[in-house]
Each structure stands twice: as structure tokens, then as C-alpha cells.
Amino acid sequence: MKVLVPVKRVIDYNVKARVKADQSGVDLANVKMSMNPFCEIAVEEAVRLREKGVVSEIVAISIGPIQAQETLRTALAMGADRAILIQSDQDLEPLAVAKVLQAVIAEEKPELVLMGKQAIDGDNNAVGQMLAALLGWPQATFASAVEIAGGKAKVTREVDGGLQTLEVTLPAVVTADLRLNEPRYASLPNIMKAKKKVLDVKDVASLGVDTVPRLKVMKVTEPPKRAGGIKVESAADLVMKLKNEAGVL
């Protein structure tokens, strides 16, 4: 079975985003970039499924600038077999990303798309669901466990208030939540091997997909800052202040 794993290059999750002075966006110059954490979890799950013998080929795909090749090399070092970069210097909206993936899927014909539930830059949590809708495929979002057998995926989902289990007929889109697995670190030999794996680069325009933005960013601003608080000396002091000063007890 072939699996397609979309991955995104984003600001490293330990770095605090800073808004540009001209309010045109977030300053990404000289900022550490990494693979989106939920995409790492998706790659890891695909590799585990191959180790179990369920998956035969893992194709990693990224849509972004030429530097996203580094992100794809990371996916290859973790165990993906080959990679595709759809090069776009413009930051695409989730709907456009879903349309690009749909076009690639028409060629690649995977039986499963395994991807992160959310990218930590745009925080939309939308591409997987949009892709499933465009393809007319079932979806199982926010997965914390995936079992594949007999052309179906049984997926445990993290929902508000607990867990839900769905069985979806393949092909399907599954999006990864935090507890699905703990991604491995790529070993040095695997990083070396990844350099020799195939990484195809295509221009986004060559797919003939409508990627025109639907949303115009008017401005990007800093959120209001919280005024600094005070340190209390003891639990007794804390309770007194919460009761008398803050009035929340």
C-alpha cells in the first residue's frame, strides 16, 4: 500500500514568532525553521506502518519554497522512500494546498494520506478535512491510534471529552494528533542515505491548479500584552489576594 505524507516547513516550535514592525506579517528572516511537529508524527506513523508490513511505499510531499527540500530530507531520513517538492514562493492557503494535493494524488494514487492535524504557523487545522472533501474520501481527524486491515483503517480520534473510534474505507485521509506516537530522531547513517533518495521538484504552476488567495491579509499585529503581575510570599498570602483583591474566590 502506498501512503502520501504531506509535510510543512514552519517556524521551529520553540521559537516565539515576532510581528514585523510594518504589520505585514511575521518576521521569518534568520529564524530557525523545522518540520511542523504534527507532520513529524504523521511521517513516524507511516514508517511504523511500513515496519509492520502494512505499507510498502511512503511518499513525502511538501508545498513551499526551495528550502522545504530540507524538510523533505528530514522525512526521507526518518524513513520516507521518496519525496516531491511542489515549489511555491507564495504562501498558499489551506484550500489551495488541498487542491495541489488533490492534483498530485490523481497521479500518485495513494491509498492513504497521513498528515498532521494542524500546522503551527497558520493554526488553521483545515487541509486534511478539505482534501478529503475534494476527493470525496472519508476522513478520520485527530488520530491517536491507527490500525489498518482489509482495506479499512480503524482510527481512534481525540475529541472534546474523550475518544471516538471510526472505521473508514480506504482510500481515506487520516490526520495525526499529539499522542499518536513519539517521532524518532533520524540516525546519522539514515541522514546520509536520505541524501541519495529521489526528491523531485515541480513548479506549482505546472499543476494548473487555482491557488489564488481568497483572504487578503490586511495587517498582522501583536496581541495585547498582559500587565506583569506580582510574586506572593505564601499560600496564605495567595488565598487572601485571590479573595480580597482579585475577587475570584
Binding site: 510581528v19 511575521v26 487578503k216 495587517k219 501583536e222 496581541p223
Partner: peptide, 15 residues
Amino acid sequence: PIYAGNALETVQSSD
């Protein structure tokens, strides 16, 4: 909010 709420984005929709 975007970037974990470290930035607020004002967007205008043409849809």
C-alpha cells in the same frame, strides 16, 4: 490568532 496566538491576523475575505 496565528502562531500560537503570538500574532493576530486581520483578513478580508473575497468569497
